[in-house]
Simulated scan of single mutants.
Amino acid sequence: MADKVRVAVLISGRGSNLLALAEHKRRDPDRPYEIVLVASNVPEARGVVLAKRLGLRTWSLSHKGMERRLFDQKLDTVLREHDVELIALAGYMRLLSPEFVERWEGRILNIHPSLLPLHKGLDTHRRALLAGDEYAGCSVHVVTADLDSGPVIAQTRVRILPRDDADSLAARVLEAEHELYPAALERYAHELRGAIGEGREGGSDD
């Protein structure tokens, strides 16, 4: 059986989903993944401080004034230095370059605060309210070159209440994210671990 899948969590903000992923792992150390790196494009992000308090390795570099491809090359180098096998975007508010996504095809997950394919992009809660949707929610999907368009692997619906505004809806959806993302990451890591194990066992006869 392959070792635990080595996960990097990418953040830009307070890191609430990072905390959910880390706590899920802490409650059961036998889960099939381990967080080996937390990386951020915002060095002053609260999530970076949180990661350090959790005893996790961190890397941060401001993307300001840097061409997207160059920043992603630096990020890619750090990920490979830490032998990362799976990337979890958790409030990472920066589009990844097509070259980066291609290099990590099938190895990047994202949590999005809508019931994809509805309301891709930003401002999802206000848009759900304006559309008169009965439900909002969150989706975990595999990242592809097209924004929020990769295969959805898990979803949770959150009923929209009559008195909801964007803030109250966002708070309840975030709670759902904290439940959905750890479970989805665990399942995906389990499947990936099996694939990695088969790859190692099926090596060349040379």
Rank of each mutant, 00 (worst) to 15 (best):
E175Q: 06
R172G: 03
S149E: 14
G197F: 10
A145C: 15
V142A: 06
L161F: 11
A170T: 09
P182K: 06
P162C: 03
L192Y: 02
I160W: 01
L185F: 01
L185I: 11
G150M: 05
T156Q: 10
L192E: 00
P162M: 07
E177D: 12
V158H: 11
A145E: 15
E179F: 04
V143H: 04
R163A: 15
Q155R: 06
V143Q: 07
L180V: 01
E191A: 11
R172S: 08
A171E: 07
S149F: 10
G132K: 04
Y135G: 09
G194N: 11
L185M: 08
D146N: 12
G199R: 10
H178Y: 15
D167E: 15
Q155G: 02
Y188Q: 05
V140E: 02
R159I: 07
P162S: 05
A184V: 08
V143C: 02
P182I: 14
V142D: 00
T144H: 01
R163D: 15
A184R: 01
A131L: 09
T156I: 10
A171R: 07
V173W: 03
A145T: 15
L169P: 04
A176K: 11
L169M: 06
E191D: 07
P151A: 14
E177I: 13
E175P: 03
S168M: 01
E191W: 10
A128F: 04
G150Q: 12
L174H: 13
A171Q: 02
Y181H: 11
A145F: 15
A176L: 08
E179A: 14
D167L: 04
E175F: 05
I153E: 05
R187E: 15
I160F: 04
E186C: 10
A171T: 09
A154K: 09
V143I: 07
G132T: 05
A154Y: 12
Q155V: 03
E134L: 12
Y181P: 04
Q155E: 07
A154N: 07
G194F: 01
E198P: 02
D164K: 00
D133N: 08
A171L: 09
A184Y: 09
D165G: 08
S139A: 08
L130M: 09
E191T: 13
Y135V: 07
G194T: 13
D133A: 10
L161W: 12
E186F: 06
A136P: 12
G150P: 11
A136E: 06
S168H: 12
P151K: 10
E179M: 08
L185T: 02
S149W: 03
I196E: 00
D167I: 11
E134Y: 08
D167N: 00
A195C: 04
A189T: 10
E134R: 07
G199D: 05
Y188F: 14
Y135A: 05
R159Q: 14
T144W: 12
P151M: 14
D146H: 12
A145M: 11
G199T: 14
G132F: 04
E198C: 13
A170H: 00
L161K: 10
H178P: 01
E186N: 02
